[in-house]
Design a protein around this nucleic acid. Structure first.
Lengths: 335, 335
DNA sequence: ATGAAAGCGCTAACAG
DNA sequence: CTGTTAGCGCTTTCAT
């Protein structure tokens, strides 16, 4: 049995013709607009079903002369943070009948451009972007053509929802310092403008405590990159006794690298991640991590999106959430 | 500094007016079509930049009278399998200039309808759906209005790419049987038509070995559901010594439930998952799991999509990949 | 090399 | 209740 994949899809006209009414009636019927007799409506739905008709939301939005869809850009689909943000956004948009269109970048490279650009050209009224790696200036430039909400990171002059990373990184670093560690490394991702808050807060906290910062930059934000970078680090003469990683994935990579060299966690290496993803809580992983309230970030971003859609002239939003250090068994005093 | 979020976005007409040429030229310039003098082209790009113009890909596709975008539906963004499928699809579409639009369902409930429907109404030429929970009949019905590729699961009469779940489930079950287990439970998700292959293969394998199948259905496919369901199971008088879970998330939930009752894995409970996700390979998790080659599933689906777009009349595709049992430390002989 | 005009699938006044 | 008409932002003949 072969499904019939017609080349041209059925339109309102086809349905109208089939029933013997005008396109307008079909349009009204499908939008539940008042002013269509029940019989006509029924006849229309029947014919539509028979013909396999699907409304074309995109054409509708075009005709409506305004962009109602919201676009959501996610930097890394493998990082649970972004799933949480998505779920928050969706909650905010719930029942608002706004279409949500998604786009995710390839986690392996830092070029947002492809995925983000295609989203901005998809006739969306606003795009919620989590996380942009471009410079502040570039983000502002992007926001010039389509309203943009930067989530996870503040950008002056652009609606932003983020968490207090300086505080989060400080808490993580201080936790390690208080435990008695002195050689504490920071496992960062690649350097991007506007993406150095955690790193700098770590460095400042170290210096304030009279300790020497040691920053290691992984090639990207994935577990594999974290593992590779850490493997090097652990080969050093005076290897650190603790690592604070930019995110849980990197931390998990560091953990693998440690075990690969028969170093136990936290016995010989203490580990702190960032994101507090579900895997961090798994028995046997028990990764100490900083929670940045991703779902709430998404929820707020969704709310702002709705506001912005309604009122383009509203003042720029800037919402900063707190972070929370969740202590687990991956950190302990140095041996 | 407040970014200027104009209500009406700039169009080709605006650019044309600014430069003092016709819309046609702007259109040509942006598509790199021949027949526009270099000076004109430059003037157009300058004006576009100045005005913050963004092409509207959706309107373009509409005008082009054919649907070039491919829609990708993912059942669960928290399950790595779907990230792998996405990455495979993207590889296939690479350089094909086909827009990819994504839609993911809420992992918590089984209603594909919202996310899938909106995808089908987004003017896409084809939708790749991973995973549909609807009945075969419903899927065929859906495929009537927009060409559909079912991935992860075969549907007669509809392009399908999937792996040999019967073999995968059999291998998993036999592995446990060969280890000497006799009380082996299967931790399944909720029952959906066309989604019972693993379960049935498990049951058949058990019966063939003279053992009694015990199927437990979790409320959904998440770790939490797996944990709740397993907690009950482990409370039973004659509790099983091994569990084969429908996917890694459920298996991870089972693992948590076991540790919560101070049962060690694999000492007192052997565990087999399905998907071979990255977390399964983590040191200390070491979950034995069935690999279904998700990235390749996506790659093939993407290729089929391209073919189907080119040739709507091509015969229905049906591709079945092998599965592979990856043995790790979560399985051992019963105590 | 450039422009005018028709039309994609749909909505939205405005008439009957 | 129902139909006509004029677009939305863009592409695409077909002229000039």
């Amino acid at each position: 049995m072969v499904t019939d994949n017609r080349h041209r899809s059925t339109t309102q006209s086809d349905v109208a013709k089939e029933v013997g009414v005008s396109r307008t009636l079909v349009s009204f019927a499908f939008r539940g607009a008042p002013g269509v007799s029940d019989e006509t409506k029924q006849a229309i739905f029947d014919a539509a079903k028979r013909l396999g008709y699907r409304p074309n939301a995109v054409a509708a939005d075009l005709a409506r002369k305004h962009r109602s869809a919201v676009g959501l850009y996610l930097m890394d689909i493998r990082n649970e943070v972004y799933a949480d943000i998505l779920s928050g956004v969706r909650t905010a948009l719930h029942e608002q009948s706004n279409r949500l269109i998604l786009s995710v970048s390839r986690s392996t490279d830092g070029e947002d451009q492809g995925a983000l650009k295609s989203l901005m050209e998809a006739h969306v009224g606003i795009v919620i972007a989590a996380t942009l790696l471009d410079s502040d200036e570039q983000v502002r430039e992007l926001a010039r053509s389509v309203p943009l909400i930067s989530v996870t990171r503040p950008v002056e002059g652009v609606d932003s929802v983020y968490s207090d990373d300086a505080a989060g990184a400080r808490a993580a670093t201080e936790h390690l310092i208080n435990l008695g560690h002195t050689r504490i490394a920071h496992l960062a991702g690649p350097v991007y403008d506007g993406h150095t808050v955690r790193r700098q807060s770590y460095a400042k906290t170290m210096r304030d405590a009279g300790l020497k910062p040691l920053v290691l930059a992984a090639e990207d934000f994935t577990q594999d990159a974290g593992q590779r970078a850490t493997a090097e680090l652990l080969g050093m003469a005076d290897r650190p006794t603790a690592i604070f990683a930019h995110n849980d994935q990197l931390a998990l990579g560091a953990r693998e690298a440690a075990y690969a060299q028969d170093l136990s966690v936290p016995g010989e290496l203490s580990l702190v991640g960032y994101d507090n993803s579900r895997v961090a809580a798994l028995h046997g992983i028990d990764l100490t991590s900083v929670d940045l309230h991703a779902a709430e970030l998404g929820l707020i971003a969704g709310t702002i999106a709705l506001d912005r859609l309604r009122n383009p002239e509203a003042p720029v939003a800037d919402r900063c959430l707190t972070t929370e250090l969740v202590m687990r068994a991956s950190t302990a005093p140095p041996a």
